[in-house]
């Protein structure tokens, strides 16, 4: 490992600084969602469409993908090749299920007459959750790339920082969803 003043690897520090920047990105989206809440002039409104049981399931899937992600990192650090492969792939698959759930939700909403430009709810909802979904998609591609590396035996304990950095990104995307799930879905009635 290269010498650094802080003892933190450069890649890891870069990811944390990037996550700091991403906080502001999602804060802008969340602030906009909240300021425009209840200001739609025409329906459908959130309470007509949001399917809490369905989204609870996909939320649970994403939460569990954070568990498989830390287990993947732990396997890579221990040099457990089989564990690395299994948990990286599992994390990516859980991510794909989450994005798939979002696709089903979006097309259901569109079918109910909530096009992108329908009202303020549709504008803010689709862009906020869409930005998040795009982040999950990037994460899935990243994890699958790492999975290919493990299949070729090119991801040993010496390069565990690569998995650690991908993991930080993945967990951050997860905590953003923890906030969005609460703000968009559970607070929709109040």
């Amino acid at each position: 490992m290269e010498r650094t003043n802080t003892g933190v690897p450069n890649e890891k520090m870069l990811m944390w600084a990037f996550i700091g920047s991403e906080c502001m990105l999602f804060a802008s989206l969340i602030a906009t969602y909240l300021t425009y809440r209840g200001r739609s002039l025409v329906g459908p409104y959130p309470e007509d469409l949001l399917n809490i049981p369905f989204i609870t399931v996909t939320t649970f899937v994403l939460l569990m993908s954070s568990l498989t992600m830390v287990l993947a990192l732990s396997a890579v650090q221990r040099g457990d090749a089989r564990g690395s492969r299994v948990f990286l792939l599992l994390t990516a698959v859980l991510g794909i299920i989450f994005v798939g759930g979002q696709a089903i939700e979006f097309s259901h909403f569109a079918g109910e007459g909530l096009g992108l430009s329908r009202n303020l709810f549709s504008s803010t909802f689709f862009l906020t959750t869409g930005f998040h979904g795009a982040h999950v998609t990037v994460g899935v591609i990243w994890l699958l790339s790492l999975w290919v590396l493990t299949m070729r035996g090119r991801l040993g304990p010496e390069s565990s920082v690569k998995v650690e950095v991908a993991g930080l990104y993945w967990h951050f995307v997860d905590v953003v969803w923890i906030v969005l799930f609460t703000v968009i879905y559970l607070m929709s009635g109040s």
Binding site: W16, A17, I19
Partner: peptide
């Protein structure tokens, strides 16, 4: 502390702005 500061500082500003 370095990483904690890198995350909590921006998080504070982000929450304050919301």
């Amino acid at each position: 502390n370095v990483l904690r500061g890198l995350f909590l500082g921006p998080l504070f500003i982000a929450v304050a702005i919301i």
